[in-house]
Design a protein around this nucleic acid. Structure first.
Lengths: 138, 138
DNA sequence: CAATAAATGCACTTCCTTTGCATTGATTAT
DNA sequence: ATAATCAATGCAAAGGAAGTGCATTTATTG
């Protein structure tokens, strides 16, 4: 089990207090977060720093973007064996229409999608919408 | 084969010159269009009109929204037997990473997606990304 | 033809994203 | 250690897209 410091270094980015905090914040969140969520969690920090930190994380394959159809980009660390950094990996995300939260369903893989002749599939983005386990359990 | 006028009337919206032009523009386009694409095509018209026209079309199930991951909402008429107006219909869109265009693959249906216990699937948004037939053929 | 309602146009606002530039902080070489 | 260098941060502002309020025009109905 790597420390966060070791992980950041292994990805080739410098370890800073801000980056450690943001990484820790992401690990604690069980859902995909918007930039504004991070802003609210770190009042002191400038949004530009948060924005650029997330962008750096994204470039270094520490987080991945999620477009869940709300129109606002969300980000998530993938925890258990998710290989989002691989171009051909099959993402699967669930967006709850009730609580408006989006989660990574890393254990549920996407079946192979067939495309017409001439089309080359490189990546698949799949967002299932509905009611999440927390909301349906009520 | 209905005329555009008849189609609009059957959907319960008034026929106006602007709406006919926009509808015609959409039928001629083989790809999903952004609002700004329509703006560029109709310099004279105000963007609010175009915006509201598209919204009206959307409400009346004439066009449907596509979220292809570019962060910009796109719209498309679905031509052959697409039943996008049905909530549970399985949309499938292809986004080309080369020419940046998004097309409706109406003939290719999405397989059933399994979600974990407690989750209720209501809708699925699937975007396959890669190289489209036009770009791969070169 | 008058009254009513919808469609259009203009102005403005808001939200999110992105960039430029100065400043601070950390790293490397002398 | 100290200077030089480069990355990280903070502040300000710009840009783009989406959405709203209100006045005006256009079409429909009585």
């Amino acid at each position: 089990m790597k420390t966060i410091e070791e992980l950041l270094e292994s990805k080739g980015i410098r370890v800073t207090a801000m980056r450690l905090l943001i990484y820790k914040f992401l690990t604690e969140k069980q859902v995909a977060v918007r930039l504004s969520d991070i802003e609210n969690a770190f009042d002191k920090a400038d949004r530009t720093t948060l924005y650029r930190t997330i962008k750096t994380f994204e470039e270094k394959d520490i987080v991945h973007q999620i477009d869940d159809g709300t129109g606002i980009t969300k980000y998530a660390l993938c925890e258990n064996g998710c290989t989002c950094e691989i171009e051909t990996d099959l993402h699967l995300h669930f967006h709850c229409n009730n609580c408006n939260e989006t989660v990574c369903l890393t254990e549920h893989k996407i079946p192979q999608i067939k495309v017409p002749d001439g089309f080359v599939s490189e990546n698949v983005n799949l967002v299932v919408k509905g009611i999440c386990d927390k909301c349906s359990g009520q």
